[in-house]
Design a protein around this nucleic acid. Structure first.
Lengths: 340, 340
DNA sequence: ATGAAAGCGCTAACAG
DNA sequence: CTGTTAGCGCTTTCAT
């Protein structure tokens, strides 16, 4: 493609018979321009189809009004929903989202140049796993970094998440109360802090409840891994009767695995997940789940990356925790002892 | 946040004891720098943590290596998947995605300034509906615009989609062959060209097959709209026994609506959708669907927006059509007359 | 209120 | 191969 020719403020100024500064002022909120000048400028701008170029401004101020959002799998409905809400919120705040797809944590290095190159104002990582090494590299950029759903804290690196330990404990309580006796926990990928904390809270609370240690199942947050885990479990003797899954996508797969094996939920196995994605409420699932209160998580994230008092703290690294809210549906309804 | 101070090539040059140009050349692919200079520069750059700034380059060349992607609902798994694959492909091509969330077509105007302001190299619209008015406004930007899944064609505006007319006809064939006799079509939102073409192809082919005109159901591509449509239809007399849905999300809702009403698929009603999203293969659904061959659609899109011969044509507006591929699953399996 | 001029960090053209 | 210089399109002093 040949060199593009865009209309510049100089072009507009020439046509309007004013200085280039006058054009700039006309398009700057709250600058002092006489009504007469403004009208001349606007007329010229309209006739030339002038659109101010943000790049010089970004160049001078080192503020691009671009926020990089690093995602792993947008195909996980939870992250799709987060991305959608986050993008909308950021647009309302006058910022843009630069979407960055990160296949694995290793690929992150290649991404650093781009983040730095565009002088993005902040980085939000919605990656399940973010290694301390990567975090260190991000620190060096000296821009606010927020780990959505993480718990890393370092200079310039903050985290915003639900209280996963508490939500893990509450999962144990809920399953116990619903009549579960032989527990299991289906994990996400090994490095994920969310999965670790949920599991830790779960295991600890079971101990408090004087229940046996749960069967630990491994997964990777995917539907398929949940389905596979269920098929492994239906053979086990004794079979667990209450399973907490580290996320909903895997939980839905787990339910379908049970279904395929002819095992019913909640009658034979209670199932509980995290994220409260839309599909939980779908007819064949009715999955009980913890809602992460995404709007609140996003609000906190914005406070940390946008200008303001909170952004100052964020430079030192902050850990924000929001309570999760249990949404009980059919898969944890106690058939024998209904909750009154 | 106070003025950021970034390391510039001048800083590096000073430390390395070379000219600023030498630094620039060191970071420019294929520029002539002696090995000695390169090493001095790299050492200085490393010690200062220098990262080249893309903004000046973008400013001079009017090429930002940013591609704007406008999406409506990323929560639709089909678009989530498209976004994921597209972002990855664009990154491989050295471009970045600027994600733009568009609530409604009206909001598009507000978005124009941003697209122009960042001097994005191209715009890809993955919106279900894009009015000719908006398209006209986009034309004026004089950057390649590609309507993903659309069929608009204008100066600078191209479209890439499956052959929806053909896929509509094939849906009629397939349902007819599977034993359907009383047909229905569940539409997406009124303005969507995809829904229109699929429906038109469907209706025409039924006529050719000498079948009655299908019952027309209205929806909006959402799960809920599909579910509601099914509940309306189960009361109808005579009830349709073969339904083509304009997209899978609505088709899944339709299946769940049938389920709730105690109507079985495929035994009582054949159901067919479009998009072949991951959930189609989930245990309780097994939905037959048309695969859009997203990788190929993306390849075509990239050809139109990235530099090259195809990009030249794109300025005049191009219509690219890719054949869809039917993926037959349980919901269209003829119980009486199985396909051999 | 307005114009002139400087300068952000880089690339490209030119001279050596 | 390397340094000097100009300039991309803005915003921001500084005069007037």
């Amino acid at each position: 493609m040949s060199e593009k020719r865009y209309v510049s403020s100089t072009d507009v100024a020439r046509l309007a018979g004013v200085s280039q500064s006058a054009v700039s002022r006309t398009f700057t909120e709250g600058a002092s321009v006489s009504e007469a000048t403004r009208e001349k400028v606007m007329a010229a701008a309209r006739s030339l189809g002038y659109r101010p170029n943000f790049l010089p401004q970004a160049l001078m101020s080192n503020r691009s009004r671009l926020v990089a959002v690093a995602v792993g799998a947008v195909t996980n409905p939870f992250y799709a929903s987060v991305l959608q809400q986050f993008t909308a919120a950021l647009q309302d705040a006058g910022q843009q989202v630069a979407l960055i797809q990160v296949a694995s944590d290793y690929a992150m290095d290649a991404v650093l140049d781009r983040i730095a190159g565009y002088r993005v104002d902040a980085l939000v990582s919605a990656l399940a796993v973010l290694s301390p090494d990567t975090a260190r590299a991000l620190s060096a950029l000296r821009i606010p970094v927020v780990c959505f759903n993480g718990r890393l804290r370092a200079e310039w690196v903050s985290s915003v998440s639900i209280d996963n330990l508490a939500a893990g404990a509450e999962a144990a309580d809920h399953l116990h109360q619903a009549g579960g006796r032989r527990f299991a926990f289906l994990s996400g990928p090994p490095g994920s802090p969310a999965t670790k904390d949920r599991r830790t809270g779960f295991v600890r609370r079971l101990r408090t409840l004087r229940e046996g240690a749960p069967l630990l199942l491994s997964g990777d947050y995917s539907y398929e891994s949940g389905l596979a885990a269920a098929l492994r479990v239906t053979d086990a003797a004794p079979r667990p009767d209450a399973v907490a899954c580290a996320n909903d996508l895997a939980a839905l797969g787990f339910l379908d695995g049970l279904r395929r094996a002819g095992v019913r939920s909640p009658e034979d196995v209670l199932v509980l997940g995290y994220d409260n994605i839309g599909m939980d409420a779908w007819e064949p699932y009715q999955l009980s789940s913890f809602d992460q209160n995404v709007p609140e998580l996003i609000r906190r994230t914005l406070r940390l990356i946008l200008d303001g008092d909170a952004a100052e703290e964020a430079r030192r690294g902050v850990l924000e925790k929001v309570p999760a809210r249990l949404v009980a549906r059919r898969t944890t309804a106690a058939p024998m002892f209904p909750l009154i």
